[in-house]
């Protein structure tokens, strides 16, 4: 954040004093960070040890991990660009958990191996299902340039 020509930065400094991410939003970011770590760890193990078993499931795991990392970063950073990235990644997560969760219930053979999103994230205390909703609520509350 050094360039004064960064207009996205100027936009957000109007309403937010020094930092944009404050209060309870910090907890949201921390939980996102933990989930990103969990998804990355699991995906790392799956790909290193048994990728050939279920390439589709494990590729999806890896993709989910990358998206969680991107969402965490986007929530931390300020500016319109990152705000958009946050919406896209969090929207993708919600879509992912709903789609994979539903499919894994109705046709378990599609996802024989656990992923972060299987059965709506049951293996992760349903946090993957709740978190995007909280994330969207929080993003909507602090839209840049919208008072």
């Amino acid at each position: 954040m050094t360039g004064p020509q960064n207009d996205a930065n100027v936009n957000t400094t109007e309403d937010a004093p020094t930092r944009r991410v404050t209060g309870v939003g910090r907890v949201l970011i921390a939980v996102y960070g933990i989930l990103a770590l969990a998804a990355t760890g699991r995906s790392f193990v799956q790909i290193v040890s048994k990728f050939a078993d279920a390439p589709l499931s494990y590729s999806l795991s890896a993709l989910a991990a990358v998206v969680y990392i991107a969402a965490t970063v986007a929530l931390i950073r300020s500016g319109r660009g990152w705000y958009r990235v946050a919406w896209i990644t969090i929207g993708f997560e919600l879509l992912g958990v709903l789609t994979v969760g539903t499919l894994s219930l109705f046709d378990p053979s599609l996802f024989p191996h656990d992923s972060v999103w299987s059965v709506y994230g049951r293996g992760y205390l349903f946090i993957p299902l709740v978190l995007p909703l909280l994330g969207m609520w929080w993003l909507a509350r602090r839209a840049p340039g919208r008072a």
Binding site: G23, V24, R26, A30, V31
Partner: peptide, 8 residues
């Protein structure tokens, strides 16, 4: 909130 994060 940092205390809450420690707990999480």
């Amino acid at each position: 909130w940092s205390t809450v994060i420690l707990g999480a």
